[in-house]
Design a protein around this nucleic acid. Structure first.
Lengths: 199, 199
DNA sequence: CCACATTTGTAGCGACCACTACATATCTGG
DNA sequence: CCAGATATGTAGTGGTCGCTACAAATGTGG
């Protein structure tokens, strides 16, 4: 018995193309026709490989968070809570205005509000954003233990705050805000973390 | 010559219903069938009154920003820049988790990413968000002139920052964050404004 | 070279979308 | 009571959506 005809496209590069379409148009705004054209394949290949449109989104989200995870590891490696916040928010200011990528963040842009039948897409996005926040919280817990943050500070609240600012910057970027505007926001935002630093 | 049959529904209450549908499902996620059912009218009445789907959205956005404008006037009436920020962000924490309304903010929830053919919907939302930011900036300019903010502070950057945090909170709320979580974010965010206070 | 497994491209499926033609109903001005 | 004007409800329109049946193409094991 044979092993069948091998696929003629590379799944990872196809995912990268799909990721960009979701990133730019959102989940419901992206059509199968756009996706297959960007991926340079035909619908049956898409469905054989990813199941359906939502499966393709999940695969794209996984790839996105995996790539961002590498960067987040560098972020939380900063020496102090303040530096973590600065590195993250300034990095976001740069990344979300990088013309190499669609503006904003896929985890926001992908689709906040969805129509009936796609209710769990926002949930998928929120879950992945929460992972980021957890990583940040763990880092701030450590900062508090090390005396880098005040004993009265709330690491979870700080993490939520930095995460919220990130999301806000993502929406700004998708609305056309330039890098300087985002850096201003990041710069001010860091001051709140700074206010919780020292003993 | 007669003046024709009078309309049997109240346009404002119908608009309120439509606003809620857009708020909950986004622009593209909201269908004409859902809208007409919520408004308790039939499609021809909708099109005769609002032109088309996008016209209905604009009317809903105008009504939304008008209602919020009243509240924003109270916000910028706070005595100091810090109090403006606190009143605004804490107010948002409450409003965006009020079960009487859909979670989040219509100007974000309405639709960040849209499909081909609706590209100007995100623009409409961003424009109305910018109006809010302008109002905030004017207030911070005054605060700086009054010595309430440091001479080195940047009112425009502060306004952008508060606006960005608001948007971030809106996305959090639409993802199911509770009031306490939003208040924590607001509380931390105010500290950055506080860092620019005094001389 | 053959039987089998899998992919690929074409072509089109039913469902739903925003939107509207049309006949009917309900008003005002004369 | 009548003529003109506008609103309403029914019942669709063409177009696009996500998705798939099917046959041809391309691989492997015997």
């Amino acid at each position: 018995m044979g092993m069948g005809r091998p696929r003629e496209f590379d799944a990872e590069t196809a995912l990268d193309r799909a990721m960009e379409v979701f990133w730019r148009h959102g989940y419901e705004g992206a059509t199968i026709a756009q996706l297959t054209e960007a991926m340079a394949i035909n619908p049956p290949s898409l469905y054989a490989c990813f199941g359906n449109k939502e499966g393709l989104l999940k695969a794209a989200l996984d790839r996105y968070t995996k790539l961002r995870g590498v960067w987040m590891d560098e972020v939380v490696a900063a020496p102090t809570a303040r530096d973590v916040a600065e590195r993250m928010l300034m990095g976001i200011a740069d990344k979300q205005t990088d013309p190499a990528n669609p503006p904003g963040c896929l985890l926001v842009q992908g689709g906040i509000a969805c129509g009936t039948g796609s209710e769990n897409v926002p949930f998928e996005l929120a879950t992945r954003r929460a992972q980021n926040e957890d990583q940040l919280r763990d880092r701030f817990v450590r900062a508090k233990a090390e005396g880098d943050l005040k004993p009265t500070s709330d690491p979870a609240a700080l993490a939520r705050y930095v995460s919220a600012v990130s999301v806000g910057m993502g929406v700004m970027a998708s609305s056309g805000a330039d890098r300087e505007a985002l850096r201003q926001v990041a710069s001010v935002a860091v001051q709140a973390v700074e206010a919780q630093s020292g003993s």
